[in-house]
């Protein structure tokens, strides 16, 4: 959308201008409808607060608060109190400091992996819907394969063989979770492709790139964006699961690695409840918020879903 605006010529009301004005109007309408949904808005506000905390982490709590070597006088496994709002961990680190630093990794991986998954899913889905015949069939076979195979198992394999790090986790989640999006996009592509304006474009001699870029992509975009918000939640869960299994980056804090540490010291059976409850609750709330926002958004762009 931004490219169209940059390329806007000076002449009054070109087709581009009309299109961008229409797009802006529909975005405003979408926002109006979104604001009317209580659950969607509460999810959005909650996410805003969490993202703000994550961005401000270095300001709120200096990184040195996580340095184990400087925390020799801190109590270990201190339960939540006024002094230690969320308690401390097995090395005397404040849990709340780990939580806001962990939010950075968890959110970053969630968003980055989702972006990757959405790009692959949209491209493959549009290709599968646009190219009929053998090519489309082969692509769909490929999509089905990834749809059937549980992404966690594949992600485990990928993150075990690639060198350990945040980028590996992003790739592992991104390349294993795009299949559902691809199917969704393909269905939408097929529906759009059958419309007269695409046929008109074809008759006027438009090539594959033109049709995909100018007609199919704008038509599938709202659906993809709604799906994105839902997928971020799953990606955050996937990140925490991989980190929990010991595949995360050991040098970075994430909610998954905190839970991994808590299992390694048997916090669950030793009565250190805050060590288990707090990071997990954070994941649940953030994922729930993403789900609420995504569902609200989805219901607006896809009115057939509204009754559900």
């Amino acid at each position: 959308m931004s490219t169209t605006e940059q390329a806007r010529p000076v002449a009054p009301m070109t087709t581009r201008q009309v299109a961008s004005r229409r797009r802006r109007a529909s975005a405003a309408k979408l926002w109006r409808e979104f604001r009317a949904s209580a659950s969607g808005m509460s999810g959005l506000i909650f996410l805003g607060v969490v993202i703000l905390l994550a961005i401000l982490a270095p300001v709120i709590a200096d990184r040195s608060m996580l340095d184990v070597t400087q925390l020799t006088d801190q109590p270990r496994f201190a339960p939540p109190s006024w002094e230690h709002p969320m308690g401390t961990d097995h090395q005397g680190r404040e849990l709340w400091v780990r939580m806001i630093w962990g939010a950075r990794t968890s959110l970053l991986v969630g968003v980055a992996a989702t972006a990757m998954s959405m790009i692959i899913g949209t491209l493959v889905g549009m290709a599968a819907g646009h190219f009929t015949g053998v090519a489309g069939g082969v692509i769909m076979r490929f999509v089905d394969f990834f749809l059937v195979l549980p992404s966690l198992v594949l992600a485990i394999v990928l993150s075990s063989v690639l060198s350990r790090g945040v980028l590996t986790i992003v790739i592992a989640i991104g390349v294993t979770s795009w299949a559902a999006t691809a199917r969704l996009v393909r269905a939408q592509t097929l529906a759009v492709e059958a419309r007269p304006y695409v046929e008109r474009s074809q008759v006027l001699g438009a090539g594959h790139w033109h049709i995909i870029g100018k007609h199919l992509f704008p038509a599938v975009l709202p659906l993809v964006l709604a799906n994105t918000t839902l997928t971020v939640g799953s990606a955050i869960i996937a990140e925490s699961t991989l980190a929990f299994l010991g595949l995360g980056d050991p040098t970075q804090q994430s909610w998954g690695t905190i839970l991994k540490d808590s299992m390694d010291v048997s916090a669950a059976t030793s009565g250190y409840w805050w060590y288990v409850v707090i990071p997990g609750l954070a994941i649940v709330l953030v994922v729930l918020a993403f789900t609420l926002v995504g569902r609200t958004f989805e219901a607006i762009v896809n009115p057939t879903l509204r009754s559900r």
Binding site: S240, A268, G271, V276, V277, G280, V284, L292
Partner: peptide, 23 residues
């Protein structure tokens, strides 16, 4: 359903372990 869908499996396991196995 929505809430349970947002719960990481391993965390629910840890919580159940903590309540019914530990405490």
């Amino acid at each position: 359903s929505l809430t349970l869908w947002s719960v990481p499996t391993f965390w629910l396991a840890l919580i159940l372990l903590m309540i019914f196995g530990g405490t």
